[in-house]
Design a protein around this nucleic acid. Structure first.
Lengths: 193, 193
DNA sequence: CCTTATCTTGAGTGTACATTCAAGATAAGG
DNA sequence: CCTTATCTTGAATGTACACTCAAGATAAGG
């Protein structure tokens, strides 16, 4: 007879940012209560436990990323200009220095791999879905003649996924915008021929 | 008047494997006492604290990797066959399923970035040194005419480093040997032309 | 406006952790 | 073989953590 007062999306996005910044293990419940402005009891009532908050945050992250992705790779626009823009936006995230410079999915799978099969499985599923979303766009690009059909769409998607995971990691070792832009450029051109 | 009984290299390699498997935060001192077969007091006497053990383990890791690298990329042998072999060995590590499938440096920098500037700095320095070692080999390959000089050695090294960081991360999402070999192949060919 | 189901609050609980330290063991120097 | 400096041992300590729960607050239904 009483409705929850907090904004679920706000809470999950705050949690998501905390997990991106500090990682799963080092994001304490105390920190989560701070960033969400919720008391422990409310968090536990809503999400069960810390893992539940994490899984819900991953879901929110994926939903947000998906929306951004489908908005950019609009079905009636050519693929390559969108790809270019996508790469640029990732470079900008990398040099931004804020939490969004990391990918919650890859950072988390690197951390919890071999520790929690359930979390690992969720992350793998989401990353595979991401790869499939890339493949869909390459399929479209090949059909439209934007890209020669010398490699399959799946092959191209796999390579780009690898490249982007690598770009984000590389950016942790070298924050020079020029170098990162050049790498994004290299990736772009590796896709086109 | 009494010499330390334990084998420092053995201890550090055991610690190194534990950190690779569980990450920095989730490798407890208790686990370190187990894998090193040393009691807490001995570990603290030898390395100061957990961070000291970690930094020493990183040093050991880098020394081991360096030795392996310089043995493979021998100065009087052509570069490209060695590169091919190097890529294959990394693919094998990725599909092995053991601790060596991850790179201690990239996994750790992803975890501790923004938490401990000293550790971050050590990791960055080591990863930059790795990139420079790659650049040296590309320099040699270009001078020998194995690779056209359309891109600088530094540029090639940066791209390969990104690719390898990405390959290891990608392998966490897809352990299909064929796919990983193909990606390694793509990277190889991206270097040669 | 009262009832009641649900949410909010935050102090409290048990556990796991990194670290310490004093007592015991051991080998080099004389 | 005794001295003494150093290493080894492992129980003890304080802290930070994830999680619980009972009391208080609040809004929808009657």
């Amino acid at each position: 007879m009483r409705i929850a007062e907090f904004d679920r999306e706000f809470v999950l996005r705050q949690a998501m940012l905390a997990f991106m910044q500090h990682g799963y293990a080092k994001t304490s419940m105390q920190k989560l209560t701070q960033v969400t402005a919720l008391h422990p009891g409310s968090l536990y009532a809503a999400f069960g436990n810390k893992k539940g908050i994490f899984l819900a945050a991953i879901e929110q992250y994926q939903a947000d990323r998906n929306q951004q992705f489908t908005a950019l790779f609009c079905q009636h626009k050519p693929v390559l200009p969108s790809l270019r823009q996508y790469l640029d936006s990732i470079v900008n995230e990398c040099i931004s220095g804020d939490a969004m410079k990391v990918c919650l999915l890859t950072k988390s799978i690197s951390e919890v791999e071999g520790q929690d099969p359930q979390i690992s499985h969720v992350l793998m599923t989401n990353l595979n879905a991401y790869e499939n979303a890339l493949a869909e766009q390459f399929e479209r690009a090949i059909k439209a003649g934007e890209i020669p059909n010398t490699r399959t769409a799946e092959h191209l998607a796999r390579f780009l996924a690898m490249g982007l995971y690598g770009l984000r990691t590389y950016a942790l070792t070298n924050r020079c915008e020029q170098d990162l832009s050049q790498l994004a450029d290299d990736l772009y051109h590796a896709m086109c021929n």
